[in-house]
């Protein structure tokens, strides 16, 4: 009967809406729990040069909807402190690593940042909430397209993406206050160092996709000298009985 059918449809719509609301609430809750977990780690054994994580970074991680940046099948895992595969042999980094990397670039609201390796766009989204403008380059075509669409849909207006070779940076928008390279290559491209402003910072994770061993921080001093530091995410003294 028509009446029954519409009733059925209304019930379905209501149920779907309710489940969407419930799911959204779960995501929000999980995100908050993740931020608490990251804060606890950072406080306990931070190896960061400046001590604990900048609270703004954690706030932003509490805002960015990571579940929008992972494939549908991985959404339930989105707020676990894990790296996740996003297709095409790429990953979305472990949130703790994203937090450390974001912290290391010392983002300021007036900064212009270059990202090499857009991936899903999550790192760019995190940076975009802290700086004026993010430019992001990706070499894998489908990922570049998906990320561009996703970032537009989610309303990130201060991120510009392109498909292309990150080795030579993005000359017309440089120099940059900070550069984030999301996967280490065999060497740090010298053109990228040239596109770093004096006083600027570049961060690169070193290691495998699922096992980052350290973060490489490259600073260009105001005198244009290069100082680099390699920072391990955890405090681990390799010698029993102290160093």
């Amino acid at each position: 009967m028509p009446l029954n059918r519409s009733c059925y449809m209304v019930i379905c719509v209501v149920l779907l809406a309710a489940s969407a609301v419930a799911q959204e609430a779960t995501f929000t809750e999980n995100r908050a729990a993740l931020v608490r977990e990251l804060r606890a780690y950072a406080e306990r054994d931070s190896t960061l040069p400046g001590g604990a994580l900048d609270s703004r970074v954690l706030e932003v991680l509490g805002e960015v909807r990571r579940h929008e940046f992972v494939p549908d099948g991985q959404r339930a895992q989105a707020y676990k402190n894990h790296p996740l595969p996003i297709g095409h042999g790429q990953t979305i980094s472990q949130p703790y690593i994203v937090a450390l990397m974001t912290d290391l670039v010392k983002a300021e609201p007036e900064h212009v940042v270059l990202e090499v390796g857009t991936g899903s766009g999550y790192q760019a989204a995190v940076l975009a909430k802290l700086v004026k403008q993010v430019y992001s380059i990706e070499i894998i075509e489908p990922l570049a397209q998906e990320a561009a669409e996703r970032l537009e849909r989610l309303g990130y207006e201060n991120i510009e993406t392109k498909l292309g070779d990150g080795y030579f940076g993005w000359q017309e928008h440089g120099p940059f206050d900070a550069i984030v390279v999301t996967a280490a290559a065999s060497h740090v491209p010298p053109p990228l160092i040239q596109q770093l402003k004096p006083g600027g910072r570049m961060v690169i994770p070193v290691g495998g996709r699922f096992q980052i061993q350290s973060l490489l921080l490259i600073e260009k001093t105001l005198e244009e000298e290069i100082v680099t530091r390699q920072i391990t995410a955890v405090r681990f003294v390799p010698l029993t009985g102290g160093h």
Binding site: D45, I97, F210, Q211, I212, Q213, A233, F236
Partner: peptide, 15 residues
């Protein structure tokens, strides 16, 4: 035990 505990804090490469 130590490296397993550090896994989530970015210490996975120690394993």
């Amino acid at each position: 035990p130590e490296v397993l505990a550090l896994r989530k804090r970015g210490g996975a490469s120690l394993i």
